Amino acid sequence: MSVFSTNAFAQPDFKQINGDEIQNNPVAQDILAKIELSKKQFLQEKEIENKRKVQQKLIDQQRITAQESLRQEIQIMEKTYEEFTPRNAFAKYVSNLNATNHEIFWDQFDYIQAKIIIARDARDSVIAQGGTFSDAMKQYVKFAKMPKVEMQNIVRELNIKHNLAQKDIQSHFDVNGKLPRFENDIESPCYGCAAKISKVKTDSGQSVPITRTVIEPKPALITNLKDSLSELQKQFLESRNIIEQKKILFEMNGIVKQIQNLK
C-alpha cells in the first residue's frame, strides 16, 4: 500500500510512501486508520440500512395482508348484517306502513342521516388533525344534535310538503308546538273553519253559535326565524354537497338558538 502526504502550508507537494515507510510514518498511519474506520462505518451503516429496508418491506407486506384481511372481514360482516344497516332496517319498518306515508318517513330518515354523516366527518376531521377523542365527540354532537325546535319545525314542514297538514293551521302552533289554551272550550276558536258553526254544551244541551276566531298573531320575529329555519331545512334536504350542508347546519343551529332564547 502507498500513501501520499503533502505540506498543508505550501504548494501541493505529494510524496509517495511505500512499504515499510508507512509503518514508520505517523501521518500515514493516522490516514490509514481513518480510512479503515470510514470503511467500517460505511459497511455498518450499509448493513443497518439493508436491515431497515428488509424490516420495512416486511412491515409493508404485513400491513397489506392485514388490510386485505380486514377488508374481507368487513365484507363478510356487511353481508351477514346487511338487513340491519340503518337504511335497510328502516326500509323494513316503513314497508309495514301505509304506502301513502312512505315519502314523509324517508324524508325524515334522510334528514337525520345527513346530519349523522356530517357529524361523523367533523369527528373524524378532529381526530385526523391530532385532536382528542373528547374534542372529536363535541364536534359530533354539535352537528348531530336535534333540539326540540328543529325537530318540530322539520316535522311540520314535511307534513305540509306531503299534504298531511295545512300551512295556515300549522301557523297557529306556538314555539313549543302547542295551540293556545282556553279556559272555556266554548270560547275556543275553530281552527280552519270557514263557515259559521255551533258548539253544544254537553251538560245543558245549549247551542252556542260561533264564528271563526281571529287568532292573535305570533311575534313577527319568531315567525320570521321559523320561516328562515324552514327554508334552510329545505335546502339541507335537497343538497348533496357535504360542505354546503355543513354551512347550512351552522346557520340552522344559530337560528334554533335564537328561537330558544325567545321562549
Rank of each mutant, 00 (worst) to 15 (best):
Y191A: 15
N176I: 05
G177W: 00
Y140K: 10
K142H: 10
G205W: 02
Q206S: 14
F182H: 11
N163R: 12
R156N: 14
S171T: 13
C190Q: 15
I154R: 04
K145H: 03
F173D: 04
V149N: 00
R212Y: 07
S204H: 00
N159V: 05
Y140H: 09
K196V: 09
K199V: 14
L229Q: 00
P189T: 11
T223P: 02
G205Y: 15
E216Q: 10
L158D: 08
S171Q: 07
P189C: 05
D227K: 08
K148R: 12
S207N: 11
K167H: 07
K201G: 04
K148E: 15
S204M: 00
M146V: 07
G177H: 00
K142Y: 12
L225N: 03
V200D: 04
V175G: 03
I222L: 11
Q166V: 12
I215W: 04
E216V: 06
Q166D: 15
N159P: 03
D227N: 12
S228C: 07
L179F: 12
E157I: 07
N184A: 09
L232V: 01
I215Y: 02
P147G: 04
S198L: 02
S204P: 03
S204N: 02
L158G: 10
K178T: 09
V175C: 01
H162G: 03
I197V: 14
L225D: 14
N159Y: 01
K145C: 15
T211S: 07
D203N: 09
E216M: 09
E231P: 01
V155P: 00
K161N: 03
L229K: 01
P209W: 02
K161M: 05
D227T: 15
Q170C: 13
I186A: 10
R212V: 06
A194R: 10
E183V: 15
P209N: 13
P217F: 02
A195Y: 07
I154F: 02
I169D: 12
F143T: 06
L158K: 03
L229S: 05
N224F: 06
T211A: 13
T202G: 06
N163H: 12
N224R: 08
N159S: 10
K201H: 11
E187H: 03
N176S: 09
K199L: 08
P219E: 11
A144T: 05
D203W: 11
I169T: 07
N176T: 14
L164F: 05
P209S: 04
H172R: 08
V175W: 02
P219Q: 01
N224W: 02
M146N: 06
N163T: 08
G205V: 05
K201S: 09
N153G: 07
N159I: 10
R156L: 04
A144L: 01
D168F: 10
D227C: 04
E231K: 05
V200N: 10
S204T: 14
D203A: 08
N159L: 12
S228R: 06
E187D: 12
Q152C: 05
P219W: 00
V175D: 13
Y191R: 11
K218E: 09
T202N: 04
K196W: 08
K196R: 13
P180I: 00
Q206V: 14
V155S: 13
I154D: 01
P180G: 10
